[in-house]
């Protein structure tokens, strides 16, 4: 916590945006450790994969598009801004006063749904990881919403800056050529990554399919999978990576993932249950739940991976 405060303060003070990006990475790592200590392993997992890894890379992509120094603007509004921030902070702190103390067994959240989830998920869904049960089954709608958010975000990024054929932007071709040149001579990075990439991809799939048992699942797996590709694109060149997975393929997977999720929901509907009710997918409700969650998580993983890859490529194509 102390770390977070120090880093946050430093982030606000530093003018070099590059340093700020690095410190944000640090901040994420610290936050993730905190999540681990608070036992929110799944959240920590996501924070590690998204916060510390992908978002740093994407922020750097943004920096490459813009400038890496923040212009200091002397504006008169800073005093008011300070007041506003302090007031907001006070309100937020006041809000937390109403919250029950950490770990208080009489807290509201421990009385309504949490015990139900904790006690019943074992027999209703039969998965050791309650978080996955909650995310994918009880709160299936919310997760579907999140998947749509990612989907929309990817589409948005693609629409805003992903139209290279229209932009009169400077070609990246020459720079990529240089990159390729410098990489080809750098055997250490190339050989190192060659061995690593299959392992990363397999690990991503492991996380994908073991989301039911341990921390993990579609979101994390998607990000890890995408990071494998990003490593490939970084080490070899972007064009090669692009021919490996053409834009069409990523878009296809993007849509397919969402459709798979929705499709599982609709299948439940047709088989006589409610939307996103997996119990009817198989003869036995528990295995139906299991199957449904597995498919849904797979859909999430596909969408996340495809979204990350296409966003990364869009940024990379825009660089310089």
């Amino acid at each position: 916590m102390g770390f977070m405060a120090v880093i946050g303060f430093a982030v606000a003070r530093l003018r070099n945006l590059f340093a700020v990006v690095m410190l944000t990475g640090l901040f994420s790592l610290t936050a993730a450790v905190l999540y681990v200590i608070l036992d929110a392993v799944d959240v920590a997992f996501t924070e590690a994969a998204v916060g510390a890894g992908i978002s740093t890379v994407l922020m750097l992509g943004t920096l490459a598009l813009t400038s890496s120094e923040e212009r200091v603007e002397k504006s008169g509004g800073s005093k008011w801004a300070l007041v506003l921030v302090v007031v907001t902070g006070c309100v937020l702190v006041y809000g937390t006063l109403d919250m029950p103390p950490f770990g208080d067994p009489t807290a509201a959240i421990h009385h309504h749904v949490a015990p139900y989830y904790l006690e019943k998920s074992g027999q209703e869904i039969g998965l050791p990881n309650v978080v996955t049960s909650v995310l994918a089954s009880y709160r299936g709608y919310d997760t579907l919403g999140e998947v749509f958010v990612i989907f929309t975000a990817a589409i948005g990024v693609l629409l805003i800056i992903g139209r290279p054929q229209f932009g009169r932007r400077r070609s990246h071709r020459m720079l990529v050529g240089e990159l390729h040149e410098s990489m080809r001579t750098n055997v250490i990075l190339r050989v190192g990554s060659k061995l690593l990439i299959p392992v990363i991809l397999l690990f991503a799939l492991y996380v994908q399919w073991h989301g039911d048992f341990g921390p993990g699942g579609g979101f994390q797996a998607g990000v890890i999978f995408a990071s494998g590709f990003i490593l490939y694109a970084l080490i070899f060149d972007i064009d090669t990576a692009r021919t490996m997975i053409p834009a069409r393929t990523t878009r296809l997977f993007l849509v397919f993932g969402v459709l798979l999720y929705t499709g599982v929901g609709v299948a439940g509907l047709f088989l006589g249950g409610n939307f996103l009710d997996y119990s009817v997918l198989a003869a036995n409700p528990v295995s139906g739940q299991h199957l449904g969650i597995l498919l849904v998580e797979f859909g999430v993983g596909l969408t996340v991976a495809a979204a990350m890859i296409s966003i990364f490529f869009t940024f990379a194509h825009q660089e310089h």
């Binding site: 750098n186 250490i188 990075l189 190192g192 990554s193 061995l195 690593l196």
Partner: peptide, 13 residues
């Protein structure tokens, strides 16, 4: 042990 030298080398370069 496998990634550390690779990363260090990338940084040094």
């Amino acid at each position: 042990l496998y990634t550390s030298p690779t990363a260090t080398h990338a940084l040094a370069r």
